[in-house]
Simulated assay, not measured.
Amino acid sequence: MNELFSGDNKIIAFVILGAILMLVMALTLILFFYFSRRKIIQKELEKKTLELDHQKGILKATIVAQEAERYRIAQDLHDAISAKLNVVSLSANFLLEEDNVTPQETEEIINHILRVTNKTIESSRKIAHNLLPPILEKFGLGAALEELCDEFSNSKKVNVTSKIKYKIGRLPADDELHVFRIVQELMNNSMRHGKSKEIELNFKSEIEKIFLYYKDDGLGFNTTTIDLQKGLGLRNIESRVSLLNGKITFKSEKLKGVEVKITI
Rank of each mutant, 00 (worst) to 15 (best):
N2M: 08
F5M: 14
I11Y: 13
I16E: 02
L17V: 09
L27R: 14
F35M: 11
R37T: 02
R37M: 13
R38Y: 15
R38W: 14
I40V: 13
K47V: 01
D53R: 15
G57Y: 14
L59T: 01
T62L: 09
V64I: 12
A65M: 01
Q66F: 15
I81M: 10
A83F: 10
K84D: 05
L90Q: 12
E97H: 08
E97C: 05
N100Y: 09
T102F: 11
I109N: 01
H112V: 00
L114S: 05
T120E: 04
K126C: 03
H129C: 00
N130A: 10
L131Q: 03
P133L: 03
L136K: 01
F139H: 12
L148E: 08
E151I: 13
F152D: 01
N159H: 09
N159G: 00
T161S: 06
K163G: 02
K165E: 00
A173E: 06
D174L: 10
D175M: 11
V183I: 14
M191E: 06
R192N: 10
H193D: 06
E200T: 12
E206Y: 01
K209P: 04
Y214V: 05
L219H: 11
F221G: 09
T224E: 12
I226T: 03
L228T: 11
G231I: 14
R235M: 02
I237V: 14
I237W: 04
L243V: 04
L243P: 07
N245K: 14
E253M: 07
K254C: 08
G257I: 00
E259M: 03
V260Y: 11
K261H: 06
T263F: 12
